[in-house]
């Protein structure tokens, strides 16, 4: 079971007030991580308009992620990619009942503050946008709103959790329609988890200290993670997912749910595909159900996709060393 505790003492994001002489607390880890738990086994879909958000909700998305441009268009457009227009985010919040997330640039504390003030349900500090600070991510404990961060390895994931991330997703390679990097990242994380769990089980405290130094995170967090042998927060797959089979494959690798970016709304059969990806995510253990979901899409209408070995821009490298 994933622990919900782990609040940083006196973190600014925790707010207390009194309602009818009852103490009410907001922004705790239980609430932030608990929010992510409610998304488990679900699909979060990238959207740029109210219409797309409504299609996503109708298809059974558990949440929508608002961007100015879909990741594959960010790749084509070049220039600087920033957070989406607040008015569009608010219009989407007024027209769907599911949670609404939005992306801010890595390290851009004020884009995050703006999104939190706009009342989005979760902020994604995302490598899809142009980083504002290559050396520091946002100190997320200062926020009452929960954050999700991308990671290519367990070390990156634990660094983000130490900064206050309530949820992790693989980085994959966004906007490529190519699932290879997401597969690589979740397999790496799984290998690393197996390694630290065996170190923990063997009682090798010095081994855990070495891991903490290598990962550049606290020993406590390494120990907690090694003990449970899984990511200590909800962990989704993201980056390059384009088909129901892609989603089911990543669920089978131990992901708690799926983010789909360009894969749906850059396809020509978006509505059917959105529903098909949801079905494959829910029923991934049943190969026949996944086949039925895959049957709902037409490969000729999939995003063409990119070879991840010859990319001019590798979004996954952004913020990776910090």
């Amino acid at each position: 079971m994933i622990p919900l505790s782990g609040d940083l003492p006196k973190s600014k994001g925790i707010k207390s007030e009194s309602v009818d002489s009852i103490n009410v607390t907001k922004g705790t880890s239980t609430l932030k991580r608990g929010f992510a738990h409610m998304l488990k086994n679900g699909v979060v879909m990238d959207v740029t308009t109210v219409e797309q958000a409504q299609i996503a909700e109708e298809a059974g998305a558990v949440s929508v992620m608002v961007l100015d441009k879909l990741p594959s268009d960010v790749r084509k457009a070049g220039g600087v990619a920033r957070t989406a227009s607040i008015r569009i985010i608010q219009d989407i919040m007024d027209s769907v009942t599911i949670p609404v997330m939005a992306k801010c640039r890595i390290g851009h504390v004020y884009e995050a503050k703006v999104l939190a003030e706009a009342n989005v349900d979760m902020v994604d500090e995302s490598e899809v946008l142009t980083p504002a600070d290559e050396n520091h991510h946002i100190w997320k404990w200062d926020f009452t709103t929960p954050f999700v961060n991308g990671a290519r390895s367990l070390a990156e994931a634990l660094r983000r959790i130490e900064e206050g991330a309530a949820m992790i997703r693989t980085k994959g390679e966004p906007g490529t329609g190519n699932v290879a990097e997401a597969v690589l990242h979740i397999k790496k994380v799984n290998d690393e988890l197996r390694t630290i769990k065996s170190i923990y089980d063997s009682g090798d405290k010095q081994g855990l200290v070495s891991i903490a130094r290598e990962f550049k995170v606290s020993l406590d967090l390494v120990e907690e993670t090694a003990k449970i042998g899984r990511m200590p927060v909800v962990n989704f797959a993201a980056g390059g997912i384009a088909t129901p089979a892609d989603a089911a494959y990543l669920m089978s690798l131990g992901c708690d749910g799926i983010f789909v970016g360009s894969g749906i709304f850059k396809a020509e059969d978006a509505m059917e595909r959105a529903r098909a990806v949801v079905l494959a995510t829910t029923f991934w253990e049943d190969a026949d159900a996944v086949k039925e979901a895959q049957k709902m899409i037409n490969e000729k209408q999939s995003i063409l996709g990119l070879d991840v070995n010859n990319l001019e821009l590798r979004m996954q490298d952004r913020g990776g060393s910090a």
């Binding site: 103490n23 009410v24 907001k26 609430l31 929010f35 009342n119 349900d121 709103t145």
Partner: peptide, 15 residues
């Protein structure tokens, strides 16, 4: 009434 107490920022713990 869904989302009766507001969005995620207003999620809370209370006895």
């Amino acid at each position: 009434e869904r989302n009766s107490f507001g969005r995620q920022k207003d999620s809370f713990e209370a006895e």
